[in-house]
Design a protein around this nucleic acid. Structure first.
Lengths: 214, 214, 214, 214
DNA sequence: TATGAATGAGACTTCATTCAT
DNA sequence: GATGAATGAAGTCTCATTCAT
């Protein structure tokens, strides 16, 4: 960002811009969305937009950071000492419900990261950093559950983070009934996988019972 | 396509164009790549390009169809009667090796489908049709292995197809050592998941042994 | 024309081309119509088209000449000795009915001459020559009716030819009822005008009675 | 228009663009004239041109509206109560002189309307509305002069408006001497025609005396 | 500091015409 | 002579960014 917005009005403007950009990126796509369109939707003069953001890329970056901070904040709440006591299936349930909820609330998250693929190096960096943090936390968590055998917790965490992310995101655009099935299957996918590494977990694996979802 | 290339030379030209487009889409991204750049890279006059493709979108579509046909052809070779006799772990190994191999050979596959997200409706259709076919075949295959309990094979197949696709694609851009771990973990992910539905398979799940990779 | 078509098939082709061009110029306009479209509509290879016509302009010119010859041929039939004996009102009636009929049969006539305005010098020449001939014949005809006073028959004939041409052409695209009124008014316009120069004509000028028209 | 030019400089720019377009349309024709050429002639960057006009068609439309407004303004000044007292021949003289003067000053008027025939629907609408207004005013005026017999003043007004428009426009491109004759003949054409509907006017119709013209 | 009109390189696409087959 | 694939100059229009006000 070009200028740190100290005044209240400025901070509001930055938020307006990011919200407008988010909407337009979702509705129209990143490339198609013009900076003038963002400014117009945000009710902010284009000149002011460029006072806060040096270029279009900076807007996506700020948006990405906002997403990452938000998701991370929610995710952290799950990696507590109490969570260590939960049955693995409960932990998986909560993690996936949390992620699913986040995607429902922020459909721009993946949309942006996918569309901008490889065109804004800084974005890759942000994504990589965010992933690294998730993976780091998740693998630490797994080690705390069972430090005995795991030789490569980063790969495991990577698989968990990315598979969950993708499946839940794709589920979003499916018919409601199918989407529920997909969410349930994602949970089962993760549970069976993690169970294979955490043998203390109970072996019974009931068929999913399609719990009601809002 | 505007004109069906009947002569040999024309068919070669169409391939040149698609190859050039593939390279550039991977190197630069879809939006940034210009039709003139594609024509230049293909050593084909821009006018000739437009004789075969009505617009830029048609090029990605042709590329997508080419990918889908190729991948499907390989995939089909796996869904044989003999494959039904294989241990599940061998089947999963082969499926994932095959997909991994395809992605290594055609790094444009996912790149294109991800980048063009939502901007070319026809492309969504092609992707949806391809997915539907994979999912259909995979779920039919799973049913033939064990028709007893499965209530929603489409959701299972969806999860398998999409998770494998994403993880292997992401693995591609990782360091070789880590990539090998990811491929192995993807196999384990799929195997534990499918085993939970096909209980006839043996329960022993050895730790991955990081096989050498080229 | 590049080559005189001697063979029967060639002559047929030239006609096909002109007919196709006529249709397309009327339907789409001169500029928008491509030579390839003309060839396609005429079921003639584009290469053959260019064997007969050196360029697009040559096609319009040939078309123009075809129109002019046809209209002139009809017009000549009116400038006879017997027509000299007719009451002026009958002569005007016939001339206007003839022109109206021609425009109905050949809606491309004016369409082409108006649209190409100033872009093909040769076309101007053709039009000027055609006009000159009409004006010449008409003024000769008027002189034969009454040579006593007329000092500038060319101006009179110009006014007659152009006013009739424009009004009937515009009438073509009006609602049938209004078009009939316009044709009748055009007759009255010409009759009153010519009567003022040919005083032997009867003075009674009945209101038009809207004769039925097909 | 895309943006209403509020500042004085912007309004000047719009006028520059319209003036440049007018010149080029007259000199080269509508289709041949490029938007870049218009911008260059107007000394305005092409981007600025597109700030005011969404596309090439919009430029002709604006031009057409400018013409129509101007001509109508002049024409209105003629349809006064005093004009009702004028001898018909004076009224016709003034109307035709006015139109002739307008065409001399704005040779683009008819040029544009004729060349664009049928390619820009909005232009047809503008022309039709303008014609309707002229015809409406003229027929109202004629009715006020003599309401007794006229059964279809719209057709009469149509004939007057279109015949005068065409003849004076064609006269423009003739040699001066012949042009004067044509203008005089146009007056006579109109006078004899209208006299046949307004019998109170004197019957004497002197031969035109070729008044000097600038 | 705030504004938004101005800028122009460059994208996509067309089509009259040629010429190798 | 007949064909139609090949050609590329040129047209329309966009949009990220600046800078005078």
């Amino acid at each position: 960002m070009r200028r740190q917005p100290r005044q209240l009005r400025s901070q509001k403007r930055v938020h307006q811009i990011l919200d407008a950009a988010e909407q337009l990126f979702i509705e129209e796509g990143f490339t198609v969305t013009t900076t003038n369109a963002i400014a117009a939707r945000a009710n902010v003069p284009i000149g002011s937009l460029y006072q806060f953001f040096p270029d279009k890329a900076a807007i996506v970056q700020a948006l990405a950071r906002r997403y990452v901070a938000l998701l991370h904040q929610r995710f952290e709440a799950l990696q507590t000492d109490e969570a260590l006591q939960l049955p693995l299936s409960d932990y998986v349930d909560q993690m996936i419900d949390l992620t699913n909820q986040f995607f429902k609330e922020h459909p721009g998250y993946h949309a942006i990261f996918m569309q901008v693929q490889g065109r804004i190096p800084e974005l890759e960096t942000i994504e990589a950093a965010a992933d690294a943090q998730f993976i780091q936390e998740l693998s630490a968590f797994l080690l705390r559950r069972d430090a005995s055998q795991q030789t490569h917790p980063e790969a495991i965490a990577f698989v968990v983070v990315k598979a969950v992310g993708t499946l839940l995101w794709l589920a979003l655009s499916q018919e409601p009934a199918f989407r529920q099935q997909l969410v349930a299957e994602t949970k089962r996918l993760m549970l069976t996988y993690l169970q294979s590494y955490l043998p203390d977990a109970p072996c019974q694996m009931p068929l999913p019972d399609d719990p009601l979802e809002d």
